[in-house]
Amino acid sequence: MTTTIRHHVSDRLLMAYAAGTLPEAFSLVLATHLSLCDECRARLGEYEALGGQVLERSDLAMAEGSLEACLARIEGLAPVARPQPRRAHGVFPAPLAKYVGGGPEKVKWRPLGMGVRQAILPTARGATARLLYIPAGQAVPDHGHRGTELTLVLQGAFADSTDRFGRGDLEIADEDLEHTPIAEAGEDCICLAATDAPLRFNALIPRLLQPVFRI
């Protein structure tokens, strides 16, 4: 299932995800990658264990009577059953499917030209998440970016000057990387991308309406 993933989450991103300090859009990309990658999942477990040990060292006395208050609060509280495992929808792992409301067929794509389509996902401010649909063999247009950009392949594959990226592979690009990703021939490529730089829009109106319609 995960043996073909060659591009993984960096230590600093994984630690920030474990610490809970990443913007929501980045967390979404990581949660989606982690759903496909046992190796990074195990590494996440380590960083969360490290967080547990940081917590162990953070002792501050509770107020008088706090135990009594808590015992009163749990009085009669029924245990919560283990929830049903969340399922992937097609090529979308569960955390992504939750944002889309299902699989790729549920995405409200908007054309970017040359057959390339995108859909911006609703996340909190600080970073933006979007799905990209790139026809097989097609280059991704207008791909300058500021800030950090994470790109996770969900279907098909793309290649740029650095390497080839297939399903589950995560490319971490900073401002220095000038790249022109090209979707591989064969299957159309679907990627989940997140950036902490503001996305540029062609028109002012869609930008103003974005928070209203959560496009």
Partner: peptide, 20 residues
């Protein structure tokens, strides 16, 4: 505690991986 802190500070969701 981490998830509670995220709820409090940002009112943002924290996507979790699916159960492998």
């Amino acid at each position: 505690a981490r998830n509670r802190r995220i709820d409090m500070a940002r009112r943002a969701a924290r996507p979790e991986p699916e159960d492998l």
